[in-house]
Design a protein around this nucleic acid. Sequence first.
DNA 1: GCATACGGAGTACCA
DNA 2: ACTGGTACTCCGTATGCG
Length: 791
Amino acid sequence: MKLVFWLLDINPKIDGKSVELWLWGIDSDGKRVLVVERNFVAYFYALLAGGVDASKVTENIMNDYGSSIASAEIVERRFFGKPVTAIKVSCRVATETGEIAERLRSVQGVADCLEDDIRAAMRYLLDNNLSPCGWHECHVESEDKTPEVRVNKVYVAKSPPKRLENVAVPDLRVMAFSTIYYSREGTPKSDRNPVLLLSTVDSNGEEKQLTAETGPDDKPVIEAFIQYVTEFDPDIIVSFGANSVHWTYLRGRSHTLGLHLDFDRAKLEPHTSMYGHVSLTGIVNLDLSDFMDVFPEVKVQTLWNLAYHLGVYKERQTIVEDVLFADYWDDIEKRDELKSFGLDSARKVYGSAVLLLDFATQLSGLTMLPLDQVLTAATGFRIEWFLIKQAQKDGELIPRRTEQIYAPYAGGLVLSPKPGLHENIAVLDFKSMYPNLMITYNLSPDTYIEPGRPEPPSGVYVAPEVGHRFRKSPPGFYKEALTYLINVRSEIRQEMSSLNPKSVEFRMLDARQKAVKIITNAAYGYAGWVGARWYIKPVAEAASAWGRYTIQKAMDMAKEAGVEVVYGDTDSLFIQYREAQAHALQENVKHQLKLDVEIGEVYQRIFFTEAKKRYAGLRADGSLDIVGLEVIRGDWAEVAKRVQQHILEIILKDQSPKKAIDYVRQTVADLKHRKLPFSDFVIWKTLTKSPEDYAIKAPHVQAAKMLKEKGWRLRGGDKVGYVVLSGKGRLYSRVKPHVFADIKDVDVDYYISNQVLPAAARILLFFNVTKGQLEKQTAETKENRSLMDYV
DNA sequence: GCATACGGAGTACCA
DNA sequence: ACTGGTACTCCGTATGCG
């Protein structure tokens, strides 16, 4: 019979020597199904050394290892663009692939073995052109002897599934949860600290709070959780932080209580899997904290900040810090507040998930990575899987990931800005510059001509400065991949333009074009990544060299046309805008450099300091575009950022330094009287490693160590919020984690002289502030450092 | 003995 | 755990002045 199903997840099922592939899905009737593939054959390629007799080597291999090998077939492939002969070795026992490959590496005539490191599930998806989060059609038979799995129906595949074009997504059962643990000893540990509260929100609109009202016994909480999950039978479980904390915690806690957290569709417990994520068999485990790299503008990565950024809620709400959970629980008057915070958190998880699921689904389909891996996989791996698909189409063998020597190379060209205010400035932007350069000059691992090698008949593009050569044709697989991506994106955007932005189709397409964009933009970075399978430094080096050439040429052309350039960075030029002239330049550049250039933002007014990568522009619609300055940095106190923001507004709109100074004076006065919220004083910084690994004493490291002393575990990647307190000595000796500090101990003078005034002076330095105004300022701040010191 | 200079560590940003 | 270019703060020691 024929089965049509949407592929939710795939996992290998290893039973002794047999490897089955389990394909979890949803059929066209909405039934949850498992399709078991029993005909998977693992294989790899033995790459032959030059000049050897392929059939002889094959014969030798079969003689010596025939008992482990199902078949050995001589095939023609390519490796880094060069034609190669290889033996495709299929293994009798899938789990022995790596071992056999390792042995064959030392066989006479075998140069190397490749693709033995492609795991079964990915191999299967790749070879059959399947796509997670996509519809497929498959000949199946019903399975009589149903394995112990929780689905409506189990089938056995009679042939590999075929992908269908349908892009719709079935109705998925989604469940979100949040946790609250009880600990008076810092970071909760599952062997001693109970789960006070589990809050859930699901796609049926049901909200639940599972709690241990009566005391420390949380066994009923976890039992109820297991029961609820089993009954609801979610396709996707969403959380914030489950990959790093909650699954391990809940599993550990279950064991402490003599329970098993075996609610997934194979009745197994959560287990760690690829790319540092936790797997739930047959259920997608989605951790929203893995989305954070998609939103770098959210500086302190918390659930609540993410949800706020996404517009899940509008009014800022009071958050209960985890440090205070135990206090809230023990205080009967505050316990309800904690409970509603827990439920609210689950709502935020669910609300955010609804908005992010389309994007994740599309990224999964594009990269071939299953939905629960695509977000935990780093950028490099996402693009790599996309490229692997393209390479396979071209007959390119997939290189192994090998240890490479890191060697930096020159990047983009950055021009020094002309400091001060400018009127009417347009940004001339090269659209998707690096991808387009790679397309235009056919930059790819398989088109690179090594020094000393003869020039191919098609001729070569020679990169400026660095001299790397790339054949002009045929196109490399980067060119093909990028051309596809860029075309697809513009088709999608075209299609979107005729749709209602509120329609489901529009939402889907928008998610897809965002996913495509992410992959497109990462291609250049991937090329220069030492960890890349296809790492060839000259590819990245040539791209950046062509980039510098391009921007330099465009600058020369601007000069020739009498257009003043005030700034530029990598792929953009900021020019004095006169409409006809600018458009003429745009056309000229487009034509001569064969790259797409657009006139982007036209600023009414723009302000540059002497520093590169830092400016503020006033857009035509009156909004500010602030780049690089303290305002948009996550490691400055809120009060300093707000002051700078207002100053920029005053300077760009009113052009009144006097007003700006008055504003600074007012804030300094407020600071002196502590008439500002405590959150204004918190400085957030990221730990790049565990606090004890630091060689130096830095303020945020000291604050982290204080948290650690109270039992709170902090690791690399964690953000520490601290405030500076009054006192003597080094800065690091008088900081405190914000959760333990009080506004009355804050050193307001530090915030005036090291936060607010420097941020203000960064801008005001460029305006003639009269002596009188400055003296007034000095008088106000008395012995503190005044603006004068900075001017 | 003290203030200042300066390189390095650390962080975060832009493209 | 995708690249290089850049700015900036704070630490900690070297340096120079009185």
